[in-house]
Design a binder for these strands. Structure first.
Lengths: 221, 221, 221, 221
DNA sequence: AATGAATGAGTTTTCATTCAT
DNA sequence: TATGAATGAAAACTCATTCAT
């Protein structure tokens, strides 16, 4: 059913995408921007350039489409993270790299960030086992990378023993995602545009400094 | 906009709350849970135990009520943070204390966390100058505390010079808020209840360790 | 809420009816003619001269309105049957009278006949206890009249002992209702208009003759 | 309208039924249960285990399929009534037999009963000449049987002269069909299951008693 | 200040029917 | 003949807002 065109970074044309793919892409964008309640089925159909009913033909209801978009978003989201050459770097440099990769990733796929936020407002009720399985699979490589690098640094006497990999994963995830998930609100409050290029670069560096710094064996701690 | 109805001769309502207060409280809860689009005016009226018209009488429209709830939530939110005796502590202990206070605060006022997230989806469009002024005033003590403690630590040679107070403020804010804003989604994904008491305590300690650790002058950094 | 205008036979004007009454009257007509699936909510609103949403305000859904119309129809239907002076007549004349009254009744309130038929297609699933109670109350006087007259005739040696009142009630009900419930189909098949006045009169007499005849003690039976 | 597709080389389907037969059988069941408006084309296709398009290929539209199902149902319905040996019985016994046969027939082919009821709601508009011819042919033997037995009984001085055969046909038809057409509704109202075996047997006997009794010359009528 | 009832404008959903293969 | 996908039209239902009192 799916032609799986593998168009690399940016979608050059809609024609090579299957109807199902087009609907999912459109749904992800609309749901991410407006949430489940705020999203309009008509608008999703318009974006996907399909008839509204095709959407029901494929997905059954707005709710089910939301779930599908959630899964789709996560799957797409964590795919293609460049976490390959970490072993060749010192542990602290490797961890900086991981943080940078995640940060860049959230920067480039803002939808996922927002879907997570939306879903959280529904207290996870759309996270069926299907969705969860897809999500877990998607985040597995990232969690693994963090665990490996952390353990290595700990063995090498570079990182403090006490740090728990899952906790650190949450911390990295939180800080990187937060910046893009709350950029508008925070920009308004702080009175400076957090999405301007220099601010983003500054934030990236800060997080690498502080988070990797926080892992090290402390001089007097 | 507000008629400020003379403080109720007969207290027909909940306790001693004015109609306006009851509406705001109800609106904050409803908006936080369901967002602007998802919230139902009928439901807010029901929760506030008032007639739907009273709501329009006091606030004019759903949008305006959302703004009012945003301001109300923020005002309530940051009030009463116990940031007084920081000067008597060493800079690192003081910063641990600040992080703990913020973390505890988000734990206790979940609505605010969610309002910020919701508002972000509207790209900050409801953040009028009125709202912003209220928000800035509310967060000012917190930002000041972080800046003061950070500067002191830097002067005392405990913290690295390079760390920017606003950046660190964002990092603390992000990590503390994130835990409660995304607890449901993350609990489902990780397969463990992030809101269980031991997990919360663990997370609190981890954040204090890593974030304060990240501020220190690094042995080899 | 209800002004209860008690306009006797024909409704002279809609203005004296409450909104609820107008909706029910319109719904009964529409549902009777087209069934639950075939009825149009818009059409009911139009007939009732109200906004469509008022209908949801009062009744919640199309299904619930159907139930309400069913109850309403039954209640209205069996009200005002003239079954008073039966005791003054000989049992056979009294039973002829009862049959005539029922027959005339179905003739004049065709909606009820059709609602029963419709509901039967849903295998009674809309007959909640509320509806059933209303229906049972509505048919009670009729069942009582048949039972009393039948018992009297049996005591007086006019009617055969074996006849069961409920069975005879069903027979009367079936034959009287059937004529009007299936008049169109049957007219087409038989090639004669069963709703023409002479045909109706003939049918009425026939039923009185045969059904009361069937009750008598048979000469050689 | 019908392409009469050559009797299937490969019998992929249910048994040996042609596609057309399978569609008609499925349609009859669906239409009988839900009526024209309530029936779903998808559901008929599903029941018939064919693609929805085959249905349009064979019958053109939902309406035309309804007509075809009506004809099909009637044709099937009245076929095989065992009305052969009536002449050898006394007129009253013969008439009991006729009533029993019709009663049993409706018991066994409930769909027809419901189709008649449904069609009546459309005021007979689907009863084209084609359909009517089929129906008339189907009921002809039954009407003839009633007329013959009635006339014989009248000649023999057993039945009263006044009874009209068509009227009596209607009465028999009404009472027998009614029991099964309205069983669900009536069972709910009366609080007893009219389709339980003893109730059916009781009803059958009652109808034979009362209706044949009603034909007799009355002692004092 | 407060309320029950009403409503306009939308929104999701359904469904018979047709198209391309 | 047969099918999976698509679609136009209409249907049920929702919801913020206002009216009359």
């Amino acid at each position: 059913m799916k032609k799986n065109p593998k168009e690399s970074g940016k979608q050059s044309g809609d024609t090579t995408l299957s109807t199902e793919q087009r609907i999912l892409t459109a749904a992800l964008a609309e749901f991410a921007q407006r949430g489940l309640a705020g999203a309009r089925v008509d608008e999703i159909a318009r974006r996907a350039k399909i008839n509204k009913q095709a959407l029901y033909y494929y997905f059954g209801s707005k709710d089910k489409l939301f779930q599908a978009a959630l899964t789709f978003g996560y799957g797409k989201s964590m795919a293609g993270l460049d976490l390959d050459d970490l072993a060749s770097l010192p542990a602290d440099a490797a961890m900086r790299r991981v943080i940078g990769v995640i940060f860049d990733h959230f920067r480039e796929t803002p939808y996922v960030v927002e879907m997570i936020a939306h879903e959280n407002h529904y207290r996870g009720e759309h996270l069926t086992e299907d969705v969860l399985a897809a999500v877990r699979e998607a985040v597995a490589p990232l969690r693994a990378a963090i665990r490996l690098v952390l353990r290595r640094g700990q063995k090498e006497g570079l990182f403090a023993r006490q740090t728990d990999p899952t906790q650190f994963y949450l911390t990295v995830f939180a800080t990187c995602m937060f910046h893009f998930a709350n950029a508008f609100t925070l920009s308004a409050i702080l009175g400076q545009d957090l999405l301007a290029e220099p601010m983003i670069a500054k934030r990236r560096r800060h997080l690498q400094d502080v988070l990797v710094g926080g892992l090290r064996i402390q001089p007097n701690g």
